[in-house]
Amino acid sequence: MRALFDNNAADAAGWLPKVDARAKLALSVVAAIGSLVVSNIQGQLLLCGFSMCYALSLRKPKALLWAYLFFTLMCGMAMGCMWIMGQFMPSLNKAGFTGLVVPFLRMLTMLHVVLPMALSTRVQDLLNALRGMRLPFCIYLPAAVVVRFIPTFLADVQQVTESLRLRGYRLSPWGITRHPVQSMRLLFTPLLFRSLRTSEDLGIAAELKGLGYGKTMTPYKTCHWALRDTLLLIAACAVLTAALTLQMHLGGTSLGGMR
C-alpha cells in the first residue's frame, strides 16, 4: 500500500491508472449490481471473464496471483466448513453444480473490480476525485482528512512498533495471541492519543482557515472526465446487459430465492 502514497512513483503502466476514480467507483457499482442480479453460470462467466480482462489491464500479475491465492484459500476454507457441516446435516449439501459455482464467480467478479481500484488509484488523485464529485462539505472534509492521515498514521504505527521493539517487547502473531490485552494497550494507546491530538490541531487549523464558512466550493483542480472513462462505463453496461440477456434466455434464480 505504500506505493499508493508515493507521490513521485513512476507512472504505472497501462491505461487503468489514468482512468478517473469516479469511473472506477461507478464500475464497481455496476459490477456489484450485475453480480447480485445475475444467477446463471453463463451470465456469471461473462461477468467474470470481462472483469478479469479489466483486472489484467492493471499489469500487475503478481498482485493478481496473490489475490487469487488468498481467494482460493478462502474458498477452500468455506468448502471445508460446508463439508464438515454436511456430515451432521446432509440436507445442507444438496446444492448442485450451479449452487457451488455461481457464488464463487460472484465473489471473483468483485475481486477483479476492487483490486484495480485499490492498486491503481493514487491517493493524490483521490483528493481531486473527491473534489470532482462535488460532495457536500460534511462528507468532503472528513474524507479528505482520512486520505491525508492514513499515511501519517501508518508512519506513526511504525514508530510505535519500533519503540516497543527497543523496549524489548516481541510483537508477533503468537505474542498477540498469547497476550491480547497487553498487545492492544501497547499498540493502540499511542494511536488513540495521537488521533486525539491530531484532531485537535487540525480542527483548530480548519477553524482558522475558514473551512466550511463559505457556501460553495470552487475546486482548484479536478480530474477531467475523459473519453476512456465514458467508454469504460459503456463497456461495463454492455457486459451487464449481455449477462442479463443470458439470464433471461437461459434462466436462473431470481433475486429472492433459490431454484
Partner: peptide, 17 residues
C-alpha cells in the same frame, strides 16, 4: 490538509467563494 504542496496552498481558498 493536503498531501502535496500545491494542494495545501489552495485548500483553504477553495471554500472562500
Amino acid at each position: 490538509f493536503a498531501l502535496n504542496v500545491e494542494d495545501e496552498l489552495s485548500f483553504a481558498l477553495e471554500w472562500q467563494g
